[in-house]
């Protein structure tokens, strides 16, 4: 399963794609089957929104209780906030979807995306 994420241009906050809109919580994001062409289509649409977001890309998810968690630690931290300041970032809101992310197990591949560090 995949979700589409980006950082908002104005404030840099992490956002997720939901029905053509950008939302703050991974739990509210659209989910795409790995083979579903809707994922790459949404990614292309999002990448064209250059005045709204920066650097949209799809991330890989795995099941975490009744929610979905990013495979990579990097994306988990993006979806939660920094682990040294539990009151900062999205995790501050708490709730079952945050708790599920915090406790997610499973093989975390390092990156749900290619070209993690892009240099031109």
């Amino acid at each position: 399963m995949k979700a589409l994420t980006a950082n908002h241009l104005l404030d840099g906050r992490v956002v997720f794609w939901s029905q053509g809109q950008w939302v703050d919580r991974l739990a509210d994001a659209d989910l795409f089957d790995d083979s579903d062409p809707a994922g790459p289509e949404a990614e292309a649409e999002a990448r064209a929104q250059t005045k709204l977001v920066v650097d949209a890309y799809l991330i890989d998810l795995i099941q975490a209780e009744e929610f979905w968690a990013p495979v990579s630690y990097r994306e988990r931290i993006r979806a939660l906030g920094p682990t040294n300041h539990l009151g900062h970032g999205k995790q501050a809101d708490g709730g079952p979807s945050i708790a599920a992310l915090q406790q997610a197990h499973g093989a975390a591949r390092s990156s749900g995306r290619v070209n993690l560090i892009k240099r031109k």
Partner: peptide
């Protein structure tokens, strides 16, 4: 100019970096 869409992120990035502004995981 960036917010008005006059320059792209690719063009803006080196300009903001010259002023110490990075886009990190959660924010700028």
């Amino acid at each position: 100019r960036r917010l008005a869409g006059e320059i792209t992120e690719d063009q803006f990035k080196p300009l903001r970096l010259m002023n110490g502004l990075y886009l990190q995981l959660h924010a700028y």
